[in-house]
Design a protein around this nucleic acid. Sequence first.
DNA 1: TTGGATGCAAAAGTTTTGCACGGTT
DNA 2: AACCGTGCAAAACTTTTGCATCCAA
Lengths: 152, 152
Amino acid sequence: MKKLDIREELKNNGMKSTKHRVAILEILIKNDQPVSAENIFFDIQKMDVSINLSTVYRNLEALAEKGLVTKLSLSGDNRSVFEYNKMVHRHYLICLGCKKILAIEHCPIKSYEHQIEDETDYEIVGHKLDLYGYCPKCKKNNPGYQPKNSQD
Amino acid sequence: MKKLDIREELKNNGMKSTKHRVAILEILIKNDQPVSAENIFFDIQKMDVSINLSTVYRNLEALAEKGLVTKLSLSGDNRSVFEYNKMVHRHYLICLGCKKILAIEHCPIKSYEHQIEDETDYEIVGHKLDLYGYCPKCKKNNPGYQPKNSQD
DNA sequence: TTGGATGCAAAAGTTTTGCACGGTT
DNA sequence: AACCGTGCAAAACTTTTGCATCCAA
């Protein structure tokens, strides 16, 4: 997605188009997986755009408010991650070794939702499914090893 | 589950049996749903047992290490919640109106895990599935509500 | 008795907020 | 020009840690 398209999408959603918002969306779109606010902050600095971490948070909140971005909590980490909202329903496969997150677009849950609606009389509007395991590298190299922080 | 059984379970897992650990497990078992560290802290004080919040965190970490407790992140909150690990695989149905959490024991995911293992070469060790919706009461009290996005 | 558990206070990490200034429309 | 976005610093909030003391085994 090009800068100009991003500027247009911001305006279409009633938001001012600033270099910081464009940069945040560029990074989320390029990564195509959930990223922490701090990593977005670092990535923007690497692009030679100066920005403050609180601006990152404020913009992520504003973008989430407009539905352009989704905030997620994934188990095993105390901080939130954010992703560009493609309006595509997705699930995540999280490596317990290196914490890498892989997005999966196939969803097996729809009929299960209907079944639960029938059983409970709830109205179900959504769900969250994450898978946990070990990626090929961690499976081979470090069985049982779990570093605390890693960038990706 | 009685205090004595809890003390025994702690010892079976190689942990010293202290009043604080017993109290934490009592609360998690009684609640039968995920609870934050701070709420556990308050509940223990209500039981007239004095305790420090850092002790709650340290014990939750130790209990999770032994597999007696599970740490979860549910979306929309910046803090972790903890539940007693019954060794029964469960999912949760969370009411977006009153925030009530209902546990569901039937799981439709096993064959999906195998499929993803084949596709990605990961070793999958578990998953987390939460459903979000409105319970019968909230559904009735907010008849105007329409879900924003259909799922997929 | 001894090693692990605890209280307390302080630190570390994440996210939010107040206010003055700057940029987009 | 008006209003919203931003930087900076400080606050708020969650979780972890160092150390002296206490307690279960």
